[in-house]
């Protein structure tokens, strides 16, 4: 018997975080939550992930920080943010007031930074969970990214785990040979869920100026161009670890989001899509429900990993 839209269960559980639907927005593309509120009411979303926060204030990279590429874009923002104390004082009160689940994305130069920021956020309270960005360079280890080494990734995860009771989602970097090795390592170290993918390292050269387009030379590729890579990695990771996966990378439409869920994602994130179509998150929620209805599926959880069999 076919279900009406309202009878379809859209709720999912992302590592202990109850989301009213599987659609979230990605860190760094949604500001601190208020910037897009005029287009989609945050209460219509399963959750939002706010811009990466670090222990100290970070001015960010020099300009230019953006380059458009075929069906995608490169960014080298450089984690510009006000630092954890100013974040808690100036932004958290308005973020808490949003009627949705809010995850705060955190970054650091070493384990102590991650631990410190996680502890401060837990003490401050009022958020649903922490997303740990391990795609930043480890200053101590000569700039190698935490996210490219399973041992370092596990250490960072444990440092966060030991300093918070909040659900911990570790955000994986796609710039690795075997993403499942890092995924297994962070889950063993206590991650409640994993999110993927972060941006793919790329670059573009201005042939008129004969210089790299980005002042920082290299940047992170996002948008539809990376979607097939992201779907493949979600497929691999979701089957390799026992925790839920938050899938992202190039999702523009409900069809894209459904593909991620069929590959094994419990929830999805929209990043670059917001720039292209600020109404996209709402359209994706509606489109997922419509897909379920058309197929007589009463629970969105039945989509998760359905393509494996």
């Amino acid at each position: 018997m076919s279900k009406t839209m309202s009878e379809i269960n859209l709720r999912v559980n992302l590592g202990g975080i109850e989301l009213s639907n599987p659609v979230t927005t990605c860190s760094g593309t949604y500001g601190f939550g208020a910037e897009y509120a005029a287009y989609v009411d945050p209460s219509e979303l399963g959750g939002i992930v706010v811009k990466g926060v670090t222990r100290e204030i970070r001015p960010g990279n020099p300009m230019p920080r953006l380059a458009e590429t075929p069906s995608g874009m490169l960014n080298s923002i450089g984690l510009q943010n006000p630092g954890i104390d100013a974040f808690i004082a100036d932004y958290l009160p308005q973020i808490r007031a949003l009627e949705t689940k809010v995850l705060v994305n955190i970054s650091g130069n070493n384990e102590e930074d991650y631990a410190f920021v996680a502890r401060r956020l837990s003490e401050a309270g009022g958020i649903a969970g922490i997303e740990v960005n391990i795609s930043c360079p480890n200053v101590k280890c000569g700039g190698i990214q935490f996210g490219t080494d399973p041992v370092m990734a596990a250490q960072v995860t444990r440092a966060v785990r030991d300093n918070t009771q909040l659900p911990v989602i570790v955000k994986l970097s796609p710039n690795v040979t075997d993403i499942t090795a890092v995924a297994r390592a962070v889950v063993e170290a206590g991650a409640d869920a994993v999110s993927l993918i972060n941006t793919l390292l790329g670059m573009a050269i201005d042939i008129q100026r004969v210089r790299p387009v980005l002042a920082n030379v290299m940047g992170g590729l996002s948008g539809p161009a990376i979607k097939p890579v992201a779907v493949r990695m979600v497929w691999q990771v979701a089957q390799a670890v026992p925790v839920p996966v938050l899938g992202m990378g190039g999702i523009l439409t409900a069809e894209d989001a459904i593909e991620f869920m069929l590959a094994g994602a419990t929830a999805v994130g929209l990043g670059t899509a917001n720039f292209v179509n600020p109404a996209a998150p709402r359209e994706v929620v509606q489109g997922i429900a419509a897909y379920c209805q058309a197929r007589g599926i009463d629970d969105v959880n039945k989509l998760i990993g359905a393509a494996w069999k």
Binding site: T29, E68, N75, F275
Partner: peptide
């Protein structure tokens, strides 16, 4: 400036 979002969310247009 070149823009990503146009609404203040991406910090690309500084």
């Amino acid at each position: 400036e070149h823009m990503g979002c146009g609404v203040g969310a991406c910090l690309g247009c500084m």
